[in-house]
C-alpha cells in the first residue's frame, strides 16, 4: 500500500495521476515531498492539539452527560431531568425566544444597509462600510458596557427621560430580555450585513433597472424582485444570527442580570457554582445539538431555495 502510493506521487508520474491540465514539466505541486506518509507529518502537531484539547474533551463531555453522579451505568436520567425541570425548560425557552428576536432584528436592520452597500456608488459607501464593520474590533465587553450605560436605571435614556419629566420611574431597559436583545443585535449586526451583502451582490442590478423602466415603483421592485431573489440570503442571515445569539455568553451574562438566564449562562453556573458537571454536560449537549440541527436545517433549506431560484 505504502509502496503503491509512493510510486503514485513520484514526480515523473504526476501527469497521469493528477490532472490533465498539469503542464508537461511533470511537476504538479510546488515544494512537494516525495514520500506519501511523510507528507502528513506537518499535520501531527495541529492534529494532536485538536485531539487532546477538543476531540477528547468533547467525547468525555458527551460520555459524562450519561453518567450522573453515582451512576455506574449509562442512563438518560439527566436528560429526563433537563426536559422535565421547569427551571431548565424556562432557560431553553428564553434562549429560543431571545435568539429568534435577535435573528429578526438583525435581518431587518441589516437589509437596508446591505442593500445600500451593494448598490450605492456614493462616497458615503466606504464610510458606511467602515462604520458597519469597525465595532467588531472592539470587544464584546466594551460594547455591552456601552449598552449598560445607555439602558440601566440611572442610564443615559432613563435619566434623560426623567429629566424631561416624561417618566417618573425608570423604564426597565437593562437586566432583562430587552437589554439582551439590544446588545446581541448590536454584536451580531455586522455579520448580518456581510451575509446579506454577499446575497444582494448576486442579484443582477439590470433586473431592477428594467423593472423600473417598465414603470414599477421602488416598492414593487423591492417586493417582487429584490426580496424574493435574496430569500436564501435572508434565511442564512437569520440562521447565523440565531446560532450566534443562542451560543452567546457575555452579553446575556452582563445585560441579562440575575433573572434572565439562558442556556449559555446556566451552563456556566452549573460548572462553577453548583459543581454538577454531569448536568452541565447535559445542558452543553442540548445547546450543541440545537446548533447542529439548525445548521443542518439551514444547509438543506439553502440548497432547496437555491434550486428554486436557479431552476
Amino acid at each position: 500500500m505504502g509502496h503503491a502510493l509512493g510510486t503514485r506521487s513520484r514526480p515523473g508520474r504526476s501527469v497521469v495521476t493528477m490532472s490533465s491540465i498539469t503542464l508537461a514539466t511533470n511537476r504538479g505541486r510546488p515544494f512537494r515531498t516525495s514520500n506519501v506518509l511523510r507528507q502528513y507529518v506537518p499535520l501531527l502537531p495541529p492534529s494532536i492539539l485538536l485531539l487532546v484539547f477538543f476531540a477528547i474533551p468533547m467525547g468525555m463531555m458527551v460520555g459524562l452527560s450519561f453518567h450522573p453522579e453515582g451512576a455506574s451505568t449509562a442512563t438518560l436520567a439527566n436528560y429526563e431531568r433537563f426536559f422535565t425541570d421547569d427551571f431548565t425548560l424556562a432557560g431553553l425557552g428564553r434562549t429560543v425566544l431571545m435568539s429568534g428576536l435577535v435573528a429578526i432584528c438583525v435581518t431587518v436592520m441589516a437589509y437596508p444597509v446591505a442593500y445600500f452597500l451593494a448598490r450605492s456608488r456614493s462616497r458615503w459607501r466606504a464610510v458606511v462600510f467602515a462604520l458597519a464593520i469597525a465595532p467588531e474590533l472592539a470587544g464584546v465587553v466594551l460594547r455591552t458596557y456601552g449598552w449598560l450605560i445607555i439602558l440601566e436605571d440611572q442610564g443615559f435614556i432613563n435619566s434623560g427621560l426623567m429629566w424631561l419629566g416624561l417618566i417618573s420611574e425608570p423604564l426597565p431597559l437593562a437586566k432583562n430580555m430587552f437589554g439582551v436583545v439590544v446588545g446581541l443585535t448590536h454584536v451580531i449586526l455586522p455579520f448580518g450585513i456581510l451575509s446579506l451583502l454577499t446575497s444582494l451582490q448576486g442579484v443582477d442590478p439590470s433586473l431592477e433597472k428594467s423593472a423600473q423602466i417598465l414603470g414599477a415603483s421602488r416598492i414593487s421592485v423591492l417586493r417582487h424582485i429584490v426580496v424574493p431573489l435574496t430569500v436564501p440570503g435572508i434565511v442564512s442571515s437569520m440562521l447565523l444570527a440565531f446560532t450566534m445569539s443562542a451560543s452567546a455568553y457575555a452579553t446575556p451574562a452582563i445585560l441579562g442580570g440575575a433573572d434572565f438566564k439562558v442556556l449559555a449562562t446556566m451552563v456556566y453556573e452549573q460548572v462553577l457554582f453548583y459543581i454538577d458537571w454531569s448536568f452541565a454536560a447535559v445542558m452543553a449537549n442540548v445547546l450543541l445539538v440545537m446548533m447542529l440541527i439548525i445548521a443542518a436545517i439551514g444547509s438543506r433549506l439553502e440548497m432547496r431555495l437555491h434550486k428554486k431560484l436557479h431552476f
Binding site: L50, A280, A281, L287, L288
Partner: peptide, 27 residues
C-alpha cells in the same frame, strides 16, 4: 476530510468548548 477535521471546532459553541475543556482538565 483533514480540512473538515481542522475546521470542526467552529461548529461547536465556545461555551460548550469551554465546558468540555474544563471538565477534561479536571477529570
Amino acid at each position: 476530510a483533514i480540512m473538515s477535521f481542522l475546521l470542526s471546532p467552529l461548529a461547536v459553541p465556545q461555551i460548550v468548548k469551554g465546558v468540555a475543556i474544563v471538565l477534561f482538565l479536571s477529570s
